[in-house]
Design a binder for these strands. Structure first.
Lengths: 147, 147
DNA sequence: TTTCGATGGTTACAAATGAAACCAGTTTGG
DNA sequence: CCAAACTGGTTTCATTTGTAACCATCGAAA
């Protein structure tokens, strides 16, 4: 362990990134194969399915997406007729987004698959390991959110 | 918690991705501002600095990069004269990559910054939380590597 | 009320990425 | 010995992404 050497394999930013990339890549197969969705599109669908009605800005906050990603994802889901836009009464810049029947159907189909995926990944860990990853991730999120 | 609803904020793939993205984004400022490196370029520099001499394929394995990323990163670092290629004696398809003095200097300058970054992030956690994230990440890596 | 800075959202453009085709060289099996 | 399969690495092309500029609207202050 010479001090001037950095071991990439043990470097937290790298490990986190690779791990997230692996998990995300594997999970994305589900919505990609199933419906040809991109990640931003999946997150948009997921956000609207969960909350019911949101603005693009809210979507961006909830799912940590840049507003251009939101904009494009919304445009695509609208093109598929999976969501519709409704103007805001008081502020004409704002649009309220809602899933259509078709969008909701896709969402309802995806949810069990997503949950199963998560469950299966976590099932490979011991009880302590599961607790550790949950605790560690939460702690890091908290630590970084205030920076 | 209706069963048909997925809470994105508690969904592991999403949380992991967002966390890694935040950390990686923050860390990237260091090598981006300092030397205008991209992530693949940083990883290449880091890999070669750590191991001394590697082929492009080895680099891809060590740092989990697609071979096109490696190829492009290597090309750019070569353009900067931060690394050189040496043909393999036995296999003329293979090139052995090494950092030049300039590349090594950049690497040596980056290592303490990288370590400091990691230290500072971890310093915001309690001892237990640090142990948890390390344990959890290792466990997940292990669980996914064999899938 | 007019003006000016902020805000919701879209678009244009350049850079980064992934998939697949590709080239050169190497190995294997017949 | 030769063809076919394979491997290291590069390139091409289409897609995705981020930045910044942009448009329209809004709110506050003069």
């Amino acid at each position: 362990m010479k001090p001037e050497i950095l071991e990439l394999e043990n470097f937290l930013p790298y490990r986190l990134y690779r791990l997230a990339d692996t998990v995300s890549r594997e999970f994305s197969r589900i919505y990609k194969e199933r419906h040809g969705l991109t990640r931003p599109e999946w997150r948009t669908l997921s956000g609207l399915g969960q909350r019911g009605m949101m603005t693009a800005t809210e979507l961006g906050e909830q799912s940590a997406m840049h507003k251009t990603k939101v904009s494009r994802a919304v445009a695509e889901l609208e093109r598929r007729r999976w969501l519709t836009r409704a103007p805001d009464e008081n502020d004409r810049r704002v649009e309220h987004l809602t899933l259509t029947k078709a969008g909701l159907a896709a969402y309802r189909e995806m949810v069990p698959l997503a949950k199963a995926f998560e469950r299966e990944v976590l099932a490979r860990l011991s009880e302590e390991e599961r607790a550790a990853i949950v605790r560690g991730v939460a702690a890091l999120e908290e630590a970084l959110s205030s920076s």
